[in-house]
Design a protein around this nucleic acid. Structure first.
Lengths: 231, 231
DNA sequence: CGCGGCTTTGATGTTCATCAAGTAAAGTGG
DNA sequence: CCACTTTACTTGATGAACATCAAAGCCGCG
């Protein structure tokens, strides 16, 4: 079960987030009273599709996936949120319910920041409002650009892209344990499980990566980069 | 050439836009001094890729396309903006230059609203800030949902979808003149010109639409809806 | 121990891009 | 206004990329 943990002060935590630059000590103190921090073990559900949106979610540690059932035996992973990411920052203003579920794919720690606190702060603190808007724009840009880039890559390019993302942006090392199954990778980059496996094997045979179950070692990052760009 | 026209008062125009609800007469008066209204004839360029973003753009009348060169002889249409739409509302906060060009595909009338006015109003008017944020969220939702939906449709589904969009959302009639060439349709929904034509022909043979050059009549909207959903 | 989920490989079929070639329409210069 | 050029449109044939189907091995778990 998820476990509520003693909240560290936002003052201490805030340095991690550009978002709260404009709050000042007063605002941070206020935020402190609006939030709850929880730990989730790998596989635990953070929230279900259809739950009311009462808070925005800040990823403190770990990895969580946003996903959506699209048929009886088909899911889709919308994105994987990583530390310092906000989830729901876009939906909170237009929707009343989450249109995706959230599940931890690693042991994670997340903050729930009450929606009303954020709204209130926006109304009274113009600088904070601008910060939120800039943050939202950047999130949107990122999502659009990456979805866009992925959608016009071929399958090899997509696999290369996501391996590089894990390696360079998430784990910052050439050897890491994939937090997701082959099937989940397929759901994330919109292809079939069989082809994920096939292309993993191709990359292995080409000497680009080593595979041992979920452990991946990237032997030739330059080549992977080339495959990603070419795709 | 584009032609600057005598600006109607924003007070008169504003009823069209939910965005300006929170401005009040004072704010609208201010906006009035921050904006310029221009007419563009079909085919005229509103702005070029790389131009500095000094204003957000509001479509008053007509249709404009946002497009981008991706190689010597390949373009891509990012979206088509219609009356009451804002363009640049997302980019204005994170970018300094347009990453797309804008061209009128019908005789159009657009307002340029100075960026600084909008930023200033956000800082001092909390309700306006919230309105902007809500509007941005909705724009983002719309873009993501429609791009998302399109990307997982087959070619027939995409063509059906876009024909329905023109018919139901833009022209609100079953018979209309396509404001774009076959090639531009291909650029908009990410396929090849040849296939746009082929599928148009199929729909014609199936008795779903009638075609006469750029004039399209949708004979069987239900069927088109079914093709769009099935794809 | 056996069941279900994950992984892997091979065979087959569908969808769509690409190439090629020809016609119609629209702009251009004399 | 007509020859000329270019651009848009159209149809058919071919091939590549990818989904789908089928079958079997692996592994953890009740």
């Amino acid at each position: 079960m998820s476990e509520k943990i003693k909240s560290p002060n936002c003052e201490i935590c805030a340095f991690r987030s550009v978002l709260f630059n404009s709050l000042g000590i007063d605002g941070l103190g206020k935020m402190n009273t609006c939030k709850d921090q929880f730990r989730f073990k790998k596989g635990e559900v953070v929230c279900h599709e259809g739950d009311p949106i009462e808070s925005i979610i800040y990823v403190h540690k770990g990895l969580i996936k946003l996903h959506k059932r699209i048929s009886e035996n088909q899911s889709q992973i919308i994105s994987i949120a990583r530390p310092f990411n906000f989830v729901g920052l876009l939906s909170v203003f237009t929707k009343t319910e989450f249109f995706y579920s959230i599940t931890a794919i690693e042991d994670s720690s997340v903050c729930f920041i009450k929606k009303d606190c954020v709204l209130g702060e926006i109304e009274t603190n113009g600088k904070f409002a601008l910060d939120i808007i800039r943050r939202m724009s950047r999130i949107t840009d990122d999502i659009l650009e990456s979805k866009f880039a992925l959608s016009k890559k071929n399958l090899r390019g997509r696999i290369a892209h996501i391996l590089l993302d894990f390696s360079e942006n998430i784990y910052k090392t050439n050897e890491f344990e994939l937090p997701v199954s082959r099937r989940e990778i397929a759901e994330l980059i919109d292809m079939r499980t069989e082809n994920v496996i096939r292309i993993f094997s191709e990359f292995r045979k080409d000497g680009i990566i080593k595979i041992n179950g979920h452990m991946i070692e990237i032997i030739n990052p330059e080549m992977l980069q080339r495959v990603s760009s070419a795709g």
